[in-house]
């Protein structure tokens, strides 16, 4: 242990340990295992003034759309591996395929495809912040429109 009392050796050893710690942390940050994708299917309409209490957390975002009524039709979460994909069944016989692409700078890249049966309605690639969301809406449904809140969080 006498060697450790020499300052240059202590510095070298400390530097190596610190570098190792940085490498482990960076590697751990860059490779989250899965992405938890959550799809909230909401019916927005002007037929009443009802606001579903389960949508409290999304109220400010939904009010942007200027509809009078919002009702949660379905809330589904699935764990999706990187470079994999999962299909979410959406009310009205539609489906939403979500494929996480990459994780960089605490943002998740998602490839999203909305289909109505065999007919594709929309293909988009979006980057959202980890634990963030975006809104996809517009398809007509039961006298209103369907609004999807698509959120993702790394696991």
């Amino acid at each position: 242990m006498k060697l450790l009392k020499k300052p240059p050796l202590r510095v070298l050893l400390f530097s190596l340990l610190a570098l190792l710690a940085v490498a482990v942390t960076v590697t751990a940050q860059k490779q989250p295992q899965n992405v938890q994708v959550r799809i909230g299917s909401i019916l927005a309409s002007n037929q009443s003034d009802e606001f579903d209490a389960r949508l409290k957390g999304l109220e400010k975002q939904l009010r942007v759309l200027k509809y009078r009524s919002y009702r949660l039709l379905k809330d589904e979460s699935q764990s999706v591996p990187w470079q994999g994909n999962r299909v979410f069944e959406i009310p009205g016989g539609r489906s939403l395929m979500v494929a996480p692409q990459e994780f960089q700078d605490n943002r998740i890249g998602l490839k999203v495809r909305l289909t109505d049966g065999p007919k594709p309605l929309l293909d988009t690639t979006v980057r959202i912040s980890n634990k963030g969301n975006f809104i996809l809406g517009g398809p007509p449904h039961e006298g209103g429109v369907l609004v999807l809140s698509i959120s993702a969080v790394t696991q």
Binding site: R107, G109, P120, L121, L122, D123, T124, T125, V126, R127, I128, S129, G132, N133, F134
Partner: peptide, 9 residues
């Protein structure tokens, strides 16, 4: 959210 591409067919 940043939208990188959209194709609405």
């Amino acid at each position: 959210a940043t939208v990188e591409s959209i194709d609405a067919y």
